[in-house]
Design a protein around this nucleic acid. Structure first.
Length: 343
DNA sequence: AACGGCGTCAACCGCAGACTA
DNA sequence: ATAGTCTGCGGTTGACGCCGT
């Protein structure tokens, strides 16, 4: 059974809002409030707009104390940290940044921050190029893998960011060192990727749960082999917990303080990233040979190494990576996070 | 000046969950 | 219990402006 449309689309105006429309909407809401019924609101004030459109306009633009543009470095850090930690939960992230809307943050991430962070891969690839490995210097960014034209997969992005951070912290950790990865035939790789893809489609949470990866304690090679054997991915909850700080649970005193150190260390890394202070991870010569198997997997050696297949169709992974409990944890975490970072 | 490519951002769309009758 | 409605959210789209050729 289909869903009833929220409004009569034929009689609804679309596109940019006119100043008069803004004025009408703003004046009404400021005087009467939304009345808890966005659908009825446009009729009440004689606007030929969909209720949802009114809501969006109010929340993203007309609402008082909205800030547009001009994101500070501190805000950058918060967005990046939270994105890596909780994914594309823009509303939660926005809640930590007063005056910012989820839409704004989402746009800012997609158009700038993502490039700022992931674009560093470009640098490292260029370095590789200078070592005579690359043939193509154009479009060597993350999104250019032949497997995937678009990078909408926040989970993968987060993994990659996570790995970048790890590469800085522990350059020889498993995830940075393809030499520790099991050698697979390109065909096997593809099958693995397809399996991951289907797993992720059928049960997005299953992919992430049940496996441990500590953000700062990389698994041993044996563990890693086992991980890969199970075709698992890092446990995001685990990852997420690595960021929980200041939980004020006396029983966890020691762990808390450790967590605090981890986070501050992480924050330092992030700062470095954002400020371009650190040198991007440059694979060692022996590692580069290992990279080749992944490049061959893509049928070419012309691009930067993409660790993961970007071919995952994880449209839902980002939003379904954890259950509501985790979301609540995230919200708690966000509060703690705020304390931890002296916001 | 005209054109095309690209980046940005406001707005739309569709889904999922909460709520209500 | 169930169907309908509303809200909130995240992904995507399209208009617009800037810039290089």
């Amino acid at each position: 059974m289909g869903r009833a449309p929220c409004c009569d689309k034929a009689n609804v105006k679309k596109g940019p809002w006119a100043p008069e429309e803004d004025a009408k909407l703003k004046a009404y809401i400021e005087q009467y409030g939304t009345g808890n019924n966005w659908i009825a609101l446009p009729q009440k004030i004689g606007l030929k707009r969909c209720g949802k459109s009114c809501r969006l306009r109010w929340l993203n633009y007309l609402r008082p104390n909205i800030k547009h543009g001009g994101f500070s470095e501190e805000e950058d850090n918060i967005i990046c940290s939270l994105y890596i930690s909780i994914g594309s939960r823009w509303s939660i992230i926005a809640a930590q940044l007063p005056g910012r809307t989820d839409n704004d943050i989402k746009n800012y991430w997609n158009t700038r921050l993502k490039k700022k962070l992931l674009g560093r891969r470009k640098e490292s690839s260029s370095n590789t190029s200078s070592m005579g490995e690359r043939k193509d210097t154009a479009n060597n960014g993350l999104e250019d893998n032949s497997y995937s034209p678009a990078l909408s997969n926040s989970a993968l992005e987060r993994l990659q960011l996570h790995m970048q951070l790890q590469s800085l912290q522990k350059p020889f950790s498993f995830y940075n060192n393809p030499g520790l990865w099991p050698k697979l035939h390109p065909l096997q790789e593809k099958i693995m990727i397809q399996s991951l893809q289907s797993m992720n489609q059928s049960s997005p949470t299953a992919l992430w749960q049940g496996q441990n990866i500590d953000l700062y304690e990389p698994p041993t090679a044996a563990m890693a082999q086992e991980d890969l054997g199970k075709m698992s991915m890092p446990n995001v909850n685990e990852l997420e917990n690595s960021f929980i700080i200041g939980n004020n649970n006396p029983a966890d005193g020691i762990e808390q303080s450790n967590a605090g150190r981890e986070v501050s260390g992480f924050q330092a890394e992030l700062d470095d990233f954002l400020n371009n202070k650190t040198v991007a991870f440059v694979p060692q010569e022996d590692q580069i040979t290992e990279f080749d198997c992944f490049q061959e997997m893509n049928g070419s050696k012309d691009d930067s190494v993409i660790w993961w297949s970007n071919d995952f169709e994880t449209k839902s992974a980002s939003s379904n990576s954890w259950d509501s409990t985790s979301v609540l944890q995230s919200e708690q975490m966000c509060q703690d996070y705020g304390l931890g970072y002296n916001m």
